[in-house]
Design a protein around this nucleic acid. Structure first.
Lengths: 130, 130
DNA sequence: CGCGAACTACGAACGTCTTCGTTGACTCTA
DNA sequence: TAGAGTCAACGAAGACGTTCGTAGTTCGCG
């Protein structure tokens, strides 16, 4: 059976998830081609195997109605990202979201628009309080 | 030789790093005791082995002047966290720091003080621009 | 029908991670 | 000085992750 809780995707699985998120959904062929467009040389059957494992783990769902199975994310991109962030928070930041946000902001430059977006988020959070 | 670039710490290694960060530095005994205070039962020699591996990898440095070697972080907590964030950014967020910050903020409630701190950070970033 | 192309499934190889038992050395003390 | 306690080093086992070759099935077409 597929496990109760979705496990954290491994590095290779995450690379595939990124591609599926980009495509929305796709066959092994489509995902493999897209993956090749990015960085490293990777075999077709490697991608197939990964997708089979990811199906067992519940990371993706498979539509078998066609000969070429179509794979789609089980959870949304956002929800997966949220779990990864929470995970990193626990493993490396002792739960301090603030510390993580600080590091994220200092890591990459964000545009003014993005900064404004973050401010809105802060307002929303503070508004919900009280 | 120790590798040029520090590799990403594994889960078990990160658990040990957290402890060392908390202690500042410590012997295997001290780190093991502290680790036991947290969650799971873990053997003394397991911690020792991990620390030896982490020394080879360059995650920690070892002072062998005493019989009980003293281990300390090679890189600061902040710099390690920054690398982990950058890593997650690349692997799961297509480099969008904003998206990561959003997820972090929505994941855990931060206090008003923390939110204010983040606002200051935003001001600083925007101030440096122009 | 018969052949080649495209597809899934399977298994094996190899590396890494995690765990711990065992061994041998040092140290303290009765 | 002998025994108990503490320590580092090593090796090996088992789980997991990643890769791909091979085999077998299905489809389309000449």
């Amino acid at each position: 059976m597929t496990p109760k809780v979705t496990p954290r995707p491994t590095d290779a699985e995450l690379a595939i998830l990124r591609t599926i998120w980009k495509l929305g959904a796709g066959t092994v062929r489509e995902i493999h081609d897209e993956l090749l467009a990015d960085q490293p040389k990777i075999g077709y059957t490697t991608v197939l195997k990964l997708l089979q494992i990811m199906t067992e783990k519940g990371l993706v769902v498979r539509d078998e109605s066609q000969r070429a199975h179509v794979y789609a994310p089980k959870e949304s991109e956002e929800s997966t990202q949220r779990r990864l962030v929470r995970d990193l928070l626990d493993r490396a930041f002792a739960g301090s979201a603030t510390a993580l946000v600080m590091q994220a902001l200092s890591t990459r430059k964000a545009s003014s628009e993005e900064l404004a977006e973050i401010r809105e988020m802060l307002d929303t959070i503070e508004g919900e309080r009280s």
